[in-house]
């Protein structure tokens, strides 16, 4: 059963700001609701006001703007999976979105919502991190863009202030040779939260290589490893260095989904697997 609250579905951002400013108590923003309502059923959240953002026009947009992909705050995971744009140049996002919950839930769950819940294992983080994404945050007072790696501040905590709302994401468009892989440890082949999630991305032309890991620290971990990878040395040494970087930057725990020990192991294994998929060892 959900607690009592007041539901609004405004048609403009201004209205949202008004409500945010004038309402007492806790206010929650609703897009897919797939986390919010579950939390409310568990009584871990009891908002007094819920603002449905699905009526705001450009929140439902997904389009390329200059050298960036804009993903509106109301874009669902399945819309990402089905988007031609995404599948062409941002494939890793479609692969990541497919890892979020079950098909029916993905018809509601939004990419931005996945980030705003800010679970350590949220599947959309690693892929968006390695692509370099900015979070577009708006409020009555100011608009700002926050690099995604600065967005999460703790378990289920982020930089959003009470009067702020995420309008969408700007994902960097990399040159055409870029490719990314997302690997996830799960207990079943059906829907499951991530036990370990690792994304890797390479663009040879840009001399860019990055990894990002979920569910291995309080917040997702982003590592720009370009310098190591495109610097001096042979592949094996570089790989060792990368694995070392990964190990040093994570701090997993034991929970019902996996053990600390195994998370460390698998973050290494996935990093190696991804690297070998992104880069044939003999290539350079």
């Amino acid at each position: 059963m959900l607690n009592k609250f007041e539901y609004y579905k405004p048609e403009s951002l201004e209205k949202i700001f008004d409500i945010l400013e004038n309402k007492e108590g806790e206010t929650a923003l609703l897009a897919g609701g797939t986390d919010l309502f579950v939390d409310m059923k568990h009584k871990t959240r009891k908002p007094d006001t819920i603002i449905d953002i699905k009526n705001i026009e450009d929140f439902s947009e997904i389009e390329e703007r200059d050298q960036e992909l804009f993903i509106g705050a109301a874009i669902t995971c399945n819309e990402i999976i089905e988007s031609e744009l995404v599948n062409k140049d941002y494939k890793i996002l479609a692969d990541s979105a497919l890892e979020v919950a079950a098909h029916q839930v993905r018809n509601r769950a939004t990419v931005v919502g996945n980030l705003c819940t800010t679970s350590p294992g949220a599947d959309m983080f690693p892929g968006l991190l390695v692509l370099k994404t900015k979070v577009v945050i708006v409020s009555k007072e100011e608009n700002r863009q926050v690099p995604l790696e600065q967005f999460a501040t703790g378990v289920k905590q982020n930089v959003l202030k009470d009067n702020e709302i995420v309008k969408g994401l700007l994902v960097k468009k990399h040159v055409a040779d870029g490719k990314g892989v997302y690997l996830k440890k799960r207990r079943t082949k059906g829907p499951d939260l991530s036990g370990v999630g690792v994304a890797g991305y390479i663009s040879e032309e840009e001399e860019y290589l990055a990894f990002a890991l979920g569910a291995v620290a309080p917040t997702p971990v982003y590592l720009d490893l370009s310098e190591i990878f495109f610097g001096e040395g042979n592949f094996t040494d570089k790989q060792e260095k990368i694995l070392k970087e990964v190990k040093e930057n994570i701090n997993p725990i034991d929970d019902v989904r996996s053990t600390k020990k195994y998370r460390i192991k698998m973050s290494q294994v996935y990093t190696r697997r991804i690297l070998s998929r992104l880069w044939k060892a003999g290539d350079k």
């Binding site: 609701g33 797939t34 079950a102 029916q104 839930v105 018809n107 509601r108 829907p191």
Partner: peptide
């Protein structure tokens, strides 16, 4: 939203109606 028993089709899409207002 974890079992699908409540699945209905809403505007052409399968959804779990237990976590929709």
């Amino acid at each position: 939203g974890e079992c699908g028993a409540c699945t209905v089709i809403m505007d052409g899409k399968a959804v779990t109606s237990c976590i929709i207002l």
